[in-house]
Design a protein around this nucleic acid. Structure first.
Lengths: 139, 139
DNA sequence: ATCCTTATTGATAATGTATTTCATTATCAT
DNA sequence: ATGATAATGAAATACATTATCAATAAGGAT
């Protein structure tokens, strides 16, 4: 719940206004460990704020994404879900069943990436390491 | 160009017929090192086969995907592009500018993945390691 | 507390992408 | 050549996302 307030503060600092619809979406996203589609967010958020429009969900998710609080998640079958962002650079593991997501760190790919970069002439800007599978509950 | 014939042979072996539209799409995909969207494939393929319909592009890309000749590619901003498939399990590096893609191998994440899996209780089914950046020409 | 500016909202329409349907056409084994 | 049927493309449909715009609400100024 502390996250909710922190997100709203940041939103306000960046010139945004705190509104009912935004509060509902922020509460949802800040406290969920699952990747959710815009429509799913829409359905869940209407429990808190029944007048919520789907367009507002899209706009708010994009705003939160610009603030770095939320990020788009890519999965083998599609890639239109959103999830609270990682703390710094972490990697992601997602359950194909329920969308439950866990961030983890501890890898060290930098040397490897450096090597590939040198060999290919590519300027590497980011990388994804993502694990797909089923969580405890789903298997 | 040898790939074109190999793809068409495989397509035939699997019960498909070799047609003008399919030949145009296969020539394109087998000889391109870029990730292309269905619409992009459509535009390029019409140069070879003007009557081409967009629906045929979707169907053919899906067929080629089932044959393992082509695969969907995910990028930060979107994820509905297709690229000739890797040889076995390889990782991908994509240019954000032009879509140019390079496969590479040589990592060994298995121990790391095993560890994460044990700690979390997840049953890991697949993983992605993907590098994003700009190719030589684009920077 | 009230007013005022303006960000935000939600209904609607528009767009763009992907899928389904179906009559026509083309492939290829015979 | 012929015929069974796979494949095609046009049209219709479904679906997700974006743009438009008048009405509303937030929050600073008074």
């Amino acid at each position: 719940m502390a996250d909710t307030e922190r997100w709203l503060e940041l939103l306000e600092e960046k010139g945004g206004r705190i509104t009912g619809p935004r509060r509902a979406i922020v509460e949802l996203m800040a406290n969920s460990d699952r990747a959710l589609s815009p429509v799913h967010v829409f359905d869940l958020a209407r429990a808190k704020y029944p007048k919520m429009g789907l367009v507002t969900v899209y706009r708010t998710l994009e705003f939160l994404s610009e603030l770095g609080l939320v990020e788009r998640v890519h999965q083998p079958d599609g890639c239109h879900m959103y999830l609270r962002a990682a703390n710094g650079h972490e990697h992601l593991m997602i359950c194909s069943g329920c969308g439950k997501a866990v961030y983890f760190s501890g890898d060290d790919l930098s040397a490897f990436i450096e090597k590939i970069s040198k060999e290919s002439g590519f300027l590497i800007q980011s990388h994804w390491l993502q694990l797909h599978g089923l969580c405890k509950e789903c298997h």
